[in-house]
Amino acid sequence: MSHAAELPLIVAVLVGLLVLTGAVLTLIGSLGLVRLGDFYERLHAPTLGTSFGMACVLLGSVLFFSVQKGRPVVHEVLIGLLVVTTTPVTLMLLGRAALHRDRQEGNRRVPASARPTRQPRAP
């Protein structure tokens, strides 16, 4: 890492903290994939990594390259935009696919429709 030798200490500490925070958040999200018990619960787990986990790592990268090159380097924003716009789409598609499959199999634990089921009227 000889390229980092001339970096100011405060920047190095800041970059290290940002990258570590992002990695810890992502790890907790992925641990959720292992620990949570149900598919619909596990659907929430990856969003930890794709929201603030990724934001922290990207910020660290932007800060590092901007200081190292002596000019603003912000093209990491593109990755952030891409992930922020695509993650909800994939997770929504997956949720709907799972709901569809569960309903086809007659799984009782998922709601039969988005509308509340009306109680049949007493005769």
Binding site: Y40, L43, H44, S51, V84, P88, G95, A114
Partner: peptide, 11 residues
Amino acid sequence: TAAPGTAWVEF
């Protein structure tokens, strides 16, 4: 869906 803890399933 992007916020952890809530997920849109059907509308």
